[in-house]
Simulated assay, not measured.
Amino acid sequence: MRQYIVDAFTEEVFTGNPAAVCFPDRWPEDALMRRIAMENNLSETAFVVQEADGLHIRWFTPGGEIDLCGHATLASAYVYFQFVDPAAEQVTFQSLSGPLTVTREGSLLAMDFPAYALAPTEVTEDMAAVLGVRPREAWLGRDLLCILDRAEDVTALRPDLGKALDLPGLLLLVTAPGEGEFDCVSRSFAPKLRVDEDPVCGSGHCHIVPYWAERLRKDQLTACQASPRGGTLYCRRMGDRVRLAGYAALFSRGEILTEP
């Protein structure tokens, strides 16, 4: 089984968010995909299989399958354009979140993703205890989105991820207004999926972009993920969809010797 490791939302390896991308000839058993994801020990391993109606993609964290993943989709598109169909300008993956189209825009890869609907939720003492700072707002979609006042508060976070297991939402997203070229800054934590910090979270920005587009009254945003690895997303709100664009860099390619 071919496997590639791609750093997403960056132009250089060792930064951005690494994803493993596998292109098996047919679907492995779910248990094997989970074990491969655990063996890779990255935040996501994507599996892409050609079926009669097109390409299908599934994403696995070390803690199991997830319904949507941005950086591993970007990585999968990068591999597709580089090694499967170099002449293609666009690719569509069928997924648990519907069809996801990725388009080449020069060196950028732009993804068309669904936006999550956000509902306000009470800021609790548990949230403050996890973050070490009290959010000024909290919103709930698939993930919990906590709003802080300053970019430096996001950068300085050392959350208690054990306590975060008891918070609502699948991931814990923390964001604040950006500085300089960036409209917003964020970090993403996923202890429920056995991922302490997701270095650059595409699906998290399906929450973050709608929030900041509304607050800043602008549809085009440049977003900074302020994890230790760091990454940049070029975003646009499009009604109930979001465009997430970024660069990608190939780290490795190889072969998994355990076949489906």
Rank of each mutant, 00 (worst) to 15 (best):
H205Y: 09
F189Y: 08
C146A: 08
T258S: 11
G169A: 15
F251N: 07
R2V: 13
R136H: 14
E179F: 05
G141H: 14
T10N: 08
D183P: 13
A245L: 05
L170M: 15
E39I: 08
A151D: 10
C206A: 06
G169E: 14
S76P: 00
A190I: 10
R142A: 05
L172S: 11
T232N: 13
L148M: 06
T103G: 01
A151R: 07
V185P: 05
E12P: 00
M238Q: 02
I256C: 07
R34C: 11
V185S: 04
Q82F: 08
L42R: 03
A164V: 13
V84A: 06
D85L: 14
G141V: 06
R236T: 02
A87R: 11
S43V: 01
W212S: 02
G204D: 02
R243Q: 05
F93Q: 05
R136M: 08
G202R: 08
G231D: 15
E214Q: 06
K218S: 09
Y4K: 04
L167M: 12
G246S: 10
M33S: 01
R241E: 12
Q225F: 05
D160P: 09
R150L: 10
V49P: 10
E179S: 11
T73R: 01
G16K: 01
E255I: 04
T222M: 06
A75F: 00
V49Y: 13
Q90T: 14
A87V: 14
R237N: 03
V6G: 02
T103E: 03
M238A: 10
E214S: 04
R26K: 11
E11D: 05
H71P: 08
L193W: 01
G246L: 09
A213D: 04
G63C: 07
A77M: 06
L68I: 03
A129R: 11
R158I: 02
A87L: 06
A87Y: 10
L165Y: 10
D240I: 12
V91F: 00
P99G: 04
F93Y: 08
V174Y: 11
P228H: 03
N40L: 12
D219H: 08
Y211K: 06
V242G: 00
A37K: 01
L74H: 03
F81P: 02
D7C: 07
L161W: 07
L257T: 05
A213E: 01
D198V: 14
F23P: 00
C201L: 11
R35M: 04
F23H: 04
C224A: 09
Y4C: 04
Y116S: 13
D149N: 04
W59T: 00
R35G: 13
P62N: 03
D153T: 15
E181I: 08
